[in-house]
Amino acid sequence: MVRVKIDLFPLLSLFFIIFPVMPTTAAFAAAVASTVTIDALQELYTPVDFDHLAHAEMYNCTSCHHHTTGTTMQDEKCLKCHKNSPATANVSCSSCHHRRSTALDGAEPHGNYHIDIVGLKGALHLNCLGCHRETGAPCGCIECHDYTEAGRKRFAVQEN
């Protein structure tokens, strides 16, 4: 998953350099959510106000949404089955990535596929952090979400 983005990034950058106006058109802005508040797992950290529009302008939909929405998938492993798959009704991460992730439960495997689906927390961190580490974006835990009181206690962090 992470490696795909390495290949995509220069291509996408080039694309947006050539067509700088396209993604910021009114139609595009209307089609994507501007901010997504990620609070599904909020316990030790405050919710994240994810600037979805800014990321949607910088990257392809499939960079994060696999084949569920927007442009067609480019990962050849996914293309084997999802070449003509239409956008799904629900595009949120949590519709496929469930809260609890173990090798005990999970989606029914299709042969060699979909047998190792990460949970919601893993999907968010692996995806966001994977890209942030490669692009030099903020990577520290509290750079995206601050500690809650419980979090401060858990990590034995002194109050500032």
Partner: peptide, 14 residues
Amino acid sequence: CPQEALLFGKREKL
């Protein structure tokens, strides 16, 4: 584990 670097399950399946 935020990264799900740890996956719990039956050893055979892991």
